[in-house]
Design a protein around this nucleic acid. Structure first.
Lengths: 161, 161
DNA sequence: TATTGTTATACTCTATAACTATA
DNA sequence: TATAGTTATAGAGTATAACAATA
């Protein structure tokens, strides 16, 4: 697994409650997705913790590893209030993983950018996130293609290759 | 979507970083799973918020709706320290959604159980979690079966029906 | 002694509102 | 006037450590 995110812990509760709305197959798929979500978060939090980062800090650092961003844009990506980003970047900056630079085009803007050490940490973080990559290796190319198309359709995306 | 969980916000960052380890197909599946995870959490948090519950509170309430549990068991399910459960159950109890009962078999134990109102809230919460149920309806039975088997294999579970 | 639940403490994330400096 | 970022504040979740009651 690679992307982003936060805490998660438990699986399989509501699904078990008498449901009159969905048949067993659908419920089982829902349950499996719940398990995937749980696994995903555990992997992510664990990988972050290995670098003494919280989930939010790891998300921001990973985001900035792609490109430096204004504080505002970080908030949009994280879907949180801009005021929260101040603290998260403060902590990353205090650890020397991120720095704030002025934006030549707009003096109101501060661009958060990873330091060399921050970039290295982000790369190591990514390599630690093997949740999806490893289990996916057990599927053939045809199966992964199938899974991709099914997930795309489930997410309402175009199914094409 | 039904089960459990917590915050999540952003998708698709680390995946985009130059990866020398996985080919494009696998990375795309990983990205899609990240999107599923994000969607899952948004749905869950939104459903919880509709009942003025936090994600953690909704998780615990949903868990107890299946069966009353000792505080310790709740902590195990949530994968957090038992001391945290005290506060979460406190808040649910203050709202009249949960109550603490003695365990006749062991006087050290307190069983957390949903009140009638708590049970009703848990059921309404479940009904609000349509993330998986609804998009899954767009897949045929054969496709859902396929998705189920692929997810099972990805999670290292037996693939049988 | 070991276990259950709680309390006390400290840190992080979160949203809201008010503030500043720019635009 | 509007926007970017910050500060101040308060609530919630989290872990750690120490505690009382019970086993």
């Amino acid at each position: 697994m690679l992307p982003i995110f936060h805490p998660v812990k438990q699986v399989g509760t509501l699904v078990d409650m008498a449901s009159t709305r969905a048949e067993p197959l659908t419920l089982e798929v829902v349950e499996l997705i719940g398990t995937v979500v749980a696994r995903y978060h555990e992997e992510y939090e664990h990988a972050a913790a290995q670098h003494s980062l919280t989930g939010a800090q790891a998300r921001v650092l990973s985001l900035l590893a792609l490109e430096p961003l204004p504080m505002r844009r970080i908030a949009v990506s994280l879907r949180c209030e801009p005021s929260n980003v101040t603290g998260i970047v403060d902590r990353l900056e205090a650890r020397g993983l991120v720095e704030r630079r002025p934006d030549p085009a707009d003096r109101r803007v501060k661009l958060a950018a990873p330091t060399e050490e921050g970039l290295a940490t982000a790369l190591r973080l990514r390599d630690a996130l093997d949740f999806a990559r490893e289990p996916l290796a057990g599927l053939s190319v045809a199966e992964r293609t199938l899974l991709r198309d099914l997930l795309r359709r489930m997410l309402g995306e175009p199914a094409g290759s």
